Amino acid sequence: MGSNDYINNYYAPAENPVSQLYTPDRFADLLIRELKTNLKRLHSYGARKIVVIGLTGVGCCPHVAKKFGGKPCSEKVNSEVQLFNDKLTPLVNKLNQKLTDAKFTFLNATSVFNTLLQQGSQNSTGSCCKMQRSTGTCVPYHTPCANRSEYVFFDGFHPTESSNKILADLAYNAKSPQVISPYTFEQLLAL
């Protein structure tokens, strides 16, 4: 229930016909049902403090943006992925109502990711390695860039270590209910 469901399934019709079977909204519903089942399973195994993380700007990944013609992002992809993200807060609220011995919170990763992009201190449209056009992964045996901290993405999909550190700090220190709710990380840890 994440980026790979969109990148490797919904937006890969040659390999997987799922986009021909589901509208974007119905596909988001399908993923939400699967996520709900898996979150309940985690609860049955004893998990009691769970952060449900929304998807970042999938359409901003260099490979996806190139494939769908977006500069710097594919707004079509981002708006369709947002349909999934919009269903996460109601899911978290329902789980908190039904499973009262647990605490679920939603982290709006799109908001966190957009903050990273707005900082503008990193190259957000290219990748640190030379990408294979067909797969978006790094060309084997080519040396990646030496200045990895200056790139948001390592390859066509995955953030660099420095981006992940920034994203983690932004997420952990978030206080706004538009970014994390109903509990901040600090509140969740204190419960």
Rank of each mutant, 00 (worst) to 15 (best):
G2M: 07
G2A: 10
G2V: 07
N4A: 11
D5C: 06
I7L: 05
I7Y: 07
N9D: 13
N9V: 09
E15D: 14
E15F: 15
N16T: 15
N16Y: 15
P17L: 15
L21E: 15
P24H: 04
D25L: 07
F27E: 00
A28V: 05
D29A: 00
L30C: 03
R33S: 11
R33T: 12
N38Y: 08
S44Y: 12
Y45P: 04
Y45K: 14
G46Q: 10
A47G: 04
R48L: 07
V52Q: 04
I53R: 06
I53S: 01
L55R: 02
L55H: 05
T56A: 11
G59C: 09
C60K: 04
C61D: 08
P62R: 09
V64Q: 13
V64H: 12
V64S: 10
A65M: 04
A65N: 05
K66W: 14
F68N: 08
G69T: 14
G69V: 13
G70C: 03
G70K: 07
P72T: 08
C73T: 06
S74A: 07
E75Q: 06
E75P: 00
Q82R: 05
L83F: 04
D86I: 02
K87M: 03
T89M: 13
T89W: 12
P90R: 01
N93F: 06
L95C: 09
L95K: 05
K98I: 09
L99H: 00
T100G: 11
D101I: 15
D101E: 09
D101Q: 11
A102D: 05
F104S: 03
F106V: 12
F106I: 13
L107D: 01
N108R: 01
N108H: 00
N108Y: 00
T110Y: 12
S111L: 11
S111V: 12
T115V: 12
Q119N: 10
S121C: 10
Q122G: 02
N123H: 13
S124C: 11
T125L: 06
G126F: 15
C128K: 01
K130D: 14
Q132W: 14
R133W: 13
R133I: 14
T135L: 10
T135W: 06
H142E: 14
T143P: 13
T143S: 15
P144D: 04
C145Q: 08
R148E: 15
R148P: 09
S149H: 13
Y151E: 11
V152C: 07
D155V: 01
G156W: 14
G156K: 08
F157I: 05
F157P: 02
H158R: 11
P159R: 11
S163H: 09
S163D: 09
S163K: 08
S163N: 12
S163F: 09
N164Y: 10
N164S: 06
A168T: 03
A168W: 00
L170A: 04
L170I: 10
L170Q: 07
A171P: 02
Y172Q: 08
N173R: 08
N173H: 10
N173D: 09
A174V: 02
Q178T: 13
V179Y: 03
P182N: 04
P182G: 03
Y183E: 03
F185C: 02
F185K: 06
F185L: 06
Q187H: 03
Q187T: 05
L188A: 00
L189F: 15
A190L: 15
